[in-house]
Design a protein around this nucleic acid. Structure first.
Length: 441
DNA sequence: GTGCGCTTAAACAATC
DNA sequence: AGATTGTTTAAGCGCA
């Protein structure tokens, strides 16, 4: 059996943020974001709005906090860096904050450290943006265009949201970085890449609003692995078909079989997108399981489990690959769509049958859109040599017996803060980050 | 224009 | 009885 897996590095796009300001000058994050909804609606995901006021006045912004919310307080814990003091209520937190984190050398130093943390993240973001820009330039994609008006970053999901979730985010949804004021995500922050997330501003597109992204973007694992945190936290629909994702879920299981509920769990755990509209995508999952012959239902001791008939899967895939367009489109006509020829993508997906989360040493340095336009065979040989198949299955990442209930997940998350704050996902993170660490550098 | 693949929605039955 | 699981059909859409 085998899994997918090649690499893709994502990154935001837009003007590079230099992020080179000296620490003492402070970061403009807090002030820049002061007009956004970040600090008020998602206190846990925003970097603490450190300001001179906050530094010079222990009570500072506390007066501005209403309803017992504070960026430094959440889940009954003081979120001052390195503190994590338990506070029964907001009042106790305020007392604690004023007593333990008053203006002194220590607090000031910690504040500076936090500034550096934020600064480093900004620099990293800037680098990722530059990388993405270079990738797009290389691929002859349209250059960045000024965004006329702020759109929901999660262009795809916003469609669904607008359709099924009228105006407000349901309380059970994680606050993802895809809120319009948080341009964090690699793809979602690319208004100039409508081919991937296009059609979002169309109020109610039909079913196929992003199938092309499955064809023209990179294979499953290459897309997900380096952006694991992204997909896990950002409300962006993964650009893969349900069948592909289901297969990946099953392949990621220790024994190559999952119950329906475990497949559900994999979806919700792996993709923030699938933490909403459960009825819709679960129905789609069931539909795909029944529809495709490559998914085989097996009765075992614990009930019905679903497995992948790899022969059927590859057969079905090869049918698509052997379409007339394969050879025809090999020459690189480097529009974003044609460059990533669908057939090649499918071929690559079949070839790069590594586990989604399996360590793949060479992969992290592999550009995402690296399919050779002219010498697929030689390239395939290389790939084969790099990854002898069948690939020994990676250490099991068990998703079974998880009391996971993503539908109840109300923990705010962001690409930055999830590393520290995602209680419902921490267990998964412990399991999976080990396997992902190589992929994610 | 047509066929195909995919998504979404929905109805329905069986099972838990 | 209600929820979950599994199957099936239909419609809309994008793409080749």
């Amino acid at each position: 059996m085998e899994d997918n897996g090649i690499k893709h590095s994502g990154g935001g796009i837009g003007s590079a943020n230099t992020g080179t300001g000296v620490v003492s000058s402070g970061l403009d994050l807090s002030t820049n974001n002061s007009t956004s909804t970040t600090s008020s609606s998602n206190p846990a995901k925003a970097s603490p709005p450190i300001s001179h006021h906050a530094i010079t006045n222990g009570q500072s912004s506390l007066h501005e906090e209403s309803g017992g919310t504070h960026p430094l307080y959440g889940h009954g814990v003081c979120k001052w860096p390195g503190c994590e003091n338990m506070c029964e209520d907001f009042g106790q937190f305020l007392k604690h904050l004023n007593s333990e984190h008053a203006l002194d050398d220590r607090s000031t130093a910690q504040c500076r450290v936090q500034m550096q943390v934020v600064q480093q993240l900004e620099i990293q973001l800037s680098k990722e943006r530059e990388r993405l820009q270079a990738m797009m330039t290389h691929l002859h994609m349209r250059p960045s265009e000024p965004k006329s008006s702020p759109k929901p970053l999660n262009l795809v999901s916003s469609v669904t949201m607008s359709k099924n979730l009228p105006s407000t985010s349901p309380p059970n949804l994680p606050q993802t970085p895809t809120t319009p004021t948080a341009p964090i995500t690699p793809m979602a922050a690319m208004p100039q890449v409508p081919s991937v997330l296009g059609g979002a501003n169309v109020p109610s597109m039909g079913a196929m609003r992003r199938r092309h992204s499955d064809k023209y973007s990179m294979p499953l694992s290459s897309e997900i692995a380096p952006n694991y945190e992204f997909y896990k936290n950002a409300d962006v629909r993964p650009p893969f078909t349900y069948a592909t994702l289901i297969r990946q879920a099953i392949m990621d299981s220790a024994d190559m079989q999952l119950t329906l509920n475990e497949i559900y769990s994999w979806f919700t755990r792996t993709f923030a997108y699938f933490r909403r509209n459960a009825a819709t995508w679960k129905n789609a999952v069931r539909h795909n399981l029944s529809l495709h012959k490559c998914f085989v239902r097996v009765e075992n001791v614990k009930g019905a489990v679903w497995t992948v008939d790899e022969v059927e899967y590859q057969k079905r895939r090869s049918q698509k690959i052997t379409g007339p367009s394969l050879v025809k489109n090999l020459p690189s006509s480097l529009g974003y769509g044609t460059a990533l020829n669908a057939s090649l993508q499918h071929e690559a997906e079949a070839l790069f049958s590594f586990s989604l989360f399996s360590p793949l040493p060479h992969a992290s340095s592999t550009p995402p859109f690296f399919l050779p336009p002219l010498d697929p065979e030689g390239y395939l040989k290389n790939l084969t040599s790099m990854c002898p198949c069948p690939v020994p299955h990676r250490p099991p990442v068990h998703v079974k017996e998880e009391p996971l209930n993503m539908d109840d997940d109300d923990c705010p998350m962001s690409l930055v803060t999830t590393a520290n704050h995602s209680p419902e996902l921490d267990d998964d993170r412990e399991l999976e980050e080990g396997n992902l660490s190589e992929d994610l550098e």
